[in-house]
Design a protein around this nucleic acid. Structure first.
Lengths: 106, 106
DNA sequence: TCTATATGATACCAAAAGGTATCACAACTG
DNA sequence: CAGTTGTGATACCTTTTGGTATCATATAGA
């Protein structure tokens, strides 16, 4: 069995794809518009968009011969929520680290 | 230039490594202890732990001939914080999705 | 209709990833 | 000291990944 977040995490592993997500946070874009922002072929960008779509991090809407790519909040939140499992670690342990450091510097 | 989160996201892309993180959330472990939980060689588990360490998601402390692996809250929180950029999307757009659905089902 | 344009799809390539097998080494333990 | 145990490191293999080049297809527009 595979975790539901697997394809989302896989999609986030590449810096180009994380950059695309930030781009799409400002504005929905066609494939060509996204590709203008990167020094690679449109085909390569299209592959990245496919992987982002498979990870449910974006959704794609066809409009004539254009394909509009936009952020998918559901998939993004799914990955984000995975981290809630570790809440206790940065809440309590970061505090612990902080007081250890303060103790050392006294 | 590379993002500081790059190695963290890379480390999270593999399901075995995410599983290791959850293991270490319950208890600090040596390499051998972690390896007991997976159907692969100790060498393979060690590779995963190295990648988790490179991503600052765990820290390793030497104790005699043992090496204790534990969660690193700093790196974990670094990746978590990357998502804060998208806060607006699941706060506002998930609400929008919700009201669209409610409208459709009326 | 004819042409330009936005995209889809496939073949191909180099590099990275994930794994095994194996050997070396350091450190407990009797 | 000798043997066992926990780990580090390397060579090697297969699959996946990230990219290009190329061609096919569909739609907008004159």
């Amino acid at each position: 069995m595979t975790e539901p977040e697997q394809l989302g995490f896989r999609a986030l592993a590449d810096p180009t794809r994380r950059s695309i997500l930030r781009l799409l946070a400002s504005q929905d874009m066609t494939i060509a518009e996204v590709a203008e922002n990167f020094d690679m072929t449109r085909a390569a960008v299209k592959k990245h968009l496919t992987i982002l779509d498979e990870g449910n991090l974006i959704s794609v809407e066809t409009d004539g011969r254009s394909r509009i790519n936009r952020l998918n909040p559901i998939g993004l939140k799914g990955v984000f929520d995975w981290f809630s499992y570790f809440d206790a670690f940065w809440d309590s342990r970061l505090d612990t680290l902080k007081s250890e450091i303060e103790k050392d510097t006294q």
